[in-house]
Write a protein that binds this DNA or RNA. Structure first.
Length: 266
DNA sequence: ATGGTCGCGTAGCGA
């Protein structure tokens, strides 16, 4: 049976009720990586999501950030916080092993720093976090596991991934230094799932609430499924669930879902 | 040129 992985920045899991449940039912992924929960672990709506058939591991935070893993299969070896960022109070990383029938897959839910405004400690923090991610990703590659780092990278990889490169020129999400971190991850051997199966331009995962961005299709592609070679070899399809942005009280991000073949069957 | 919108939490920051 194929295994599907979703990444979705919900922009507050509690503000997204009941829309989040509707979207989760629609995408019906085996594993869902959530970002920007904006709540402590105790305030996460566990039972409603458990009722959809998910095991849940959260790494929450009051008011800001917060990430979670939902899985229809057993979750093992859970790690909260990114290696090398042990002193960071911001909850931006949770990683675990998914015990799927077609073989185990390691997965991480990532919420990378925004980094604006540039020229401040916020941008330095973004680069520092990305460097820690690169070091961790490199160490993980040595395990030669199917591994998916799914999340809001807050990086627009190419000109075609935004409606107007000029509008984003001075933004932390589009700065050369930021794009270089995404490229470094690709150079290590990680494949952007969307790029592998599509690669076309002007497919977005985020539309700002402001200035009618959704109505004008002024979006950007910043939510990515980055796959180890062992995961990329099994990738079948990727869907960006654009319709989620048109719902009542939507998140400003939409889910991205990748479907992977079994590892065992040959 | 500026303001345009959400969420948290109840002012002003973060995005």
């Amino acid at each position: 049976m194929p295994l599907s992985f979703a990444t979705w920045n919900v922009n507050s899991i509690n503000a997204r009720r009941p829309t989040a449940l509707e979207v989760l039912k629609e995408i019906d992924a085996d594993v869902v990586c959530l970002q920007e929960l904006k709540c402590e672990d105790g305030k996460f709506p566990r039972s409603e999501i458990e009722d959809l058939g998910y095991n849940i591991e959260t790494h929450g935070q009051k008011t800001y950030n917060g990430v979670a893993l939902l899985s229809k299969h057993r979750i093992e070896d859970v790690r909260r916080g990114l290696a090398g960022m042990e002193d960071d109070p911001q909850s931006r990383w949770i990683e675990a092993l998914i015990d799927a029938p077609g073989g185990v897959v390691r997965v991480a839910s990532l919420y990378a720093p925004n980094g604006n405004p540039i020229g401040t400690e916020k941008f330095d923090y973004k680069l520092k976090f990305m460097d820690a991610l690169l070091a961790h990703a490199k160490a993980r590659l040595a395990l030669e596991e199917p591994y998916v780092i799914a999340g809001d990278y807050n990086i627009i990889p190419r000109d075609e991934d935004c409606y107007s490169p000029i509008a984003w020129m001075e933004d932390a999400l589009f700065l050369t230094e930021s794009k270089a971190k995404y490229r470094a991850l690709a150079n290590l051997g990680f494949t952007d799932a969307f790029m592998q199966v599509d690669g076309g331009g002007h497919h977005y995962t985020f539309w700002d609430y402001q200035a009618g961005a959704w109505q004008k299709d002024h979006g950007i592609r910043i939510d990515h499924l980055m796959c180890s070679p062992q995961a990329a070899d099994r990738l079948e399809a990727v869907t960006i669930h654009k319709s989620a942005r048109g719902k009542e009280k939507p998140s400003d991000h939409v889910p991205v879902v990748g479907v992977f073949r079994d590892g065992k069957a040959k």
